[in-house]
């Protein structure tokens, strides 16, 4: 009976969403703001990757909020898990096999390099701070799988995290004090399609990359080490 009622409710909700979706003209450039971004994005921000110009420049404040959400989640997780620690003494973890060990050791530096490449070139090619950071964190996940006994240093990861976030905020405040708005792109835009272009966008994306990478690695560390 309960299942039936919830099924009927779900069907009603789905029907409503479909009714609303029907009105949206997909594939037509009616989306007016998006159209503007595509036409003027490179000129106004200097970033060749339009998505980056939207994420870091036009809607940079949202990105600041998003990295704060991640920070909140990481801090909340460590606050909750830190209390719930029950170490069972004498419980041994099976050592990884030779293939896992070698594979992880081989992939770890490559993944770090790929992650760094992605966030450094965030304003030129697809990807950016979040994606690069997530790839770096997955490299650390492999490290936990393949290399026994190796851990990230908690203090270092916190310092990197804090400095990354502070870079973002300080750049924003510099924009404010120069007399314009918060997060104003005050550096020269440079020639589009070169590494040193788009003003503060690459700086912010590199900061985000470091922050996201160390934060997600910290979350993995907490889950694997603390709660055994």
């Amino acid at each position: 009976m309960r299942k039936l009622i919830s099924l009927i409710l779900l069907v009603i909700i789905a029907g409503g969403i479909v009714l609303s979706l029907k009105e949206i003209p997909f594939g037509i450039s009616k989306i007016k703001i998006g159209d503007y971004y595509i036409k003027k994005g490179i000129e106004e921000t200097g970033a060749t990757n339009i998505v980056t110009s939207v994420v870091v420049s036009y809607r940079g404040f949202d990105t600041l909020g998003e990295i704060t959400i991640l920070f909140t989640a990481a801090i909340g997780l460590s606050a909750v898990l830190g209390t719930y620690r029950k170490r069972k003494a004498g419980e041994k973890v099976e050592p990884p096999s030779f293939i896992v060990k070698t594979g992880c050791r081989f992939l770890f530096p490559i993944l770090l390099l790929v992650g760094a490449y992605i966030f450094i070139h965030g304003h030129l090619t697809p990807g950016g701070g979040f994606q690069g950071g997530a790839i770096i964190a997955s490299a650390f996940l492999l490290m936990y799988l393949g290399c026994e006994g190796k851990r990230i240093n908690e203090n270092t990861s916190i310092v990197v995290e804090v400095l990354g976030a502070l870079t973002f905020i300080v750049l924003g405040i510099i924009g404010l004090t120069i007399g314009k708005d918060f997060l104003f792109n005050f550096l020269p835009k440079g020639e589009p399609n070169t590494l040193l272009s788009a003003g503060i966008i690459p700086v912010i994306y590199i900061a985000i990359g470091f922050k996201v990478g160390s934060e997600l690695a910290g979350i993995i560390d907490h889950l694997i080490e603390k709660n055994q």
Binding site: I33, Y36, Y37, E44, S57, Y58, R59, G60, F61, D62, G175, K180, D181, F182, L183, F184, N185
Partner: peptide
């Protein structure tokens, strides 16, 4: 009302 990043609404936040 203030805009952020130097873009007037509705372009920016």
């Amino acid at each position: 009302h203030v805009s952020i990043g130097g873009f007037l609404p509705p372009l920016g936040i």
